[in-house]
Design a binder for these strands. Structure first.
Lengths: 241, 241
DNA sequence: GTTCCAATTGGAC
DNA sequence: GGTCCAATTGGAA
């Protein structure tokens, strides 16, 4: 687990002046009722706040990206519970700073509106009309996100749409959730993986539809398999030409 | 679709005297509010009545078996919607006869009790302490069925328990839902299938847990796959001995 | 020993 | 073309 001092270091790296120690900032939000032990649990908490519309537009892209930056500013491949949990707390700290700043700027106007189309934050900083999907920091363009009619879509379709927003066809065709090779086809080359973005999509859809993540996982697996087949067919067709 | 006269023929075959025409008997139950077009829908209706506890113990094994007997008394492999729908109506007719007979025997005693452990019918005829799972006529021993704590079990476990009640390990290891070979392993011999009993288990669990049949299907697939692996491992171990 | 999981496949729709 | 499905596999839990 990262220390409060180290977190402050990252905060300053992202051009956020240290106002208070991490622990104090953390208390801007009500302390959680029960102890959160895993990244999954923290994600659910975070997601709950996101659903309320408080969070979705508060982070800039660089802030969101801090979820995949380590203490040295490098892109991190650490997906351990400790690191994810640290990221969660870090982002809560950043958002707390944002909220207090916004509160001073425009005192008590336009609150309790669920996911306003334009927030003060967006009106000040342009170019980041993004919707945050989860604690991993994954964002999608707001315009694209609002096109999605979650009420009418099956969750499997929502999964595919979000995957298409965050990954190229090539990425979808060459990546898998685990990076492991199929147990049924040993010797087939294993692929890379992209746990943070896929993880955010997984939890976002699971929360949206109030279904188990295992269901979403199956949908992701099928979607990725179809992407691979599509690419394979295309290559085979080009070879015959 | 089978005619009322033909249904009467089957009824008499099962030693039930014709009391009324089928149409009249059918009106003992309230007519369905909406038209039922498929076997799946009729199954759901039937299952609803079963859940209320009215039906579960009213059929003898031979009555249940009539679900897989055709007009000539032979075991039928017909799983078409028409045939299943006919079976459904036939069973409702049988049950209506039973109910009216029981009503006369013990007038208005012990009604609205959900799934009584012993019914008048059972006290008269011994040897058929069976619970009917679905319109396909699949039954399991009541004693075994009542051991299952559906509240605590995951639906996947319920699927496995019911499969184990209705099939031997050998059957589970050598059968599949569709009888088709795996698309990923062409050339591997295809297996037989047993649609009626598996169908009843599928719908029973889906209704019990109020989940989609596709979920139950996945659970069945995994259970059968595990059964095959277990057998395979055993054979491999015997070969090395 | 039992249960669950994801990657792969061809085909159905 | 896009989407969904079941059979198979080895290993994880």
């Amino acid at each position: 687990m990262m220390s409060a001092m180290e977190i402050d270091k990252v905060l300053s790296m992202h051009n956020y002046a240290k106002k208070e120690s991490f622990d104090t900032i953390d208390h801007v939000d009500k302390p959680p009722e029960k102890v959160v032990n895993t990244y999954q649990e923290s994600e659910m908490m975070f997601q709950g706040e996101l659903e309320k519309g408080k969070i979705s537009t508060l982070l800039t892209p660089s802030e969101s990206m801090c979820g995949v930056l380590d203490i040295k500013g490098n892109k991190s491949t650490d997906t351990s519970d400790d690191f994810m949990w640290y990221n969660h707390k870090l982002k809560k700290a950043v958002m707390a700073l944002r909220l207090t700043a916004d509160d001073k700027a425009n005192s008590a106007s336009n609150n309790s509106v669920p996911i306003p189309s334009v927030t003060p934050r967006e009106s000040i900083k342009s170019g980041h009309n993004e919707v945050l999907l989860g604690a991993g920091g994954t964002t999608v363009p707001r315009r694209e996100y609002e096109k999605l009619d979650f009420q009418r879509m099956k969750y499997t379709i929502a999964v595919r749409r979000l995957l298409n927003l965050k990954f190229t066809k090539e990425e979808l065709a060459t990546h898998s959730q685990t990076g492991k090779e199929s147990p049924a086809f040993i010797g087939v080359k294993a692929e890379n993986h992209n746990p943070v973005r896929v993880g955010d999509i997984r939890l976002h859809v699971a929360k949206k539809y109030n279904i188990d993540t295992s269901l979403v996982n199956k949908a992701i697996t099928v979607a990725l398999a179809d992407a691979r087949k599509t690419k394979k067919r295309k290559i085979e067709k080009e070879d015959t030409d």
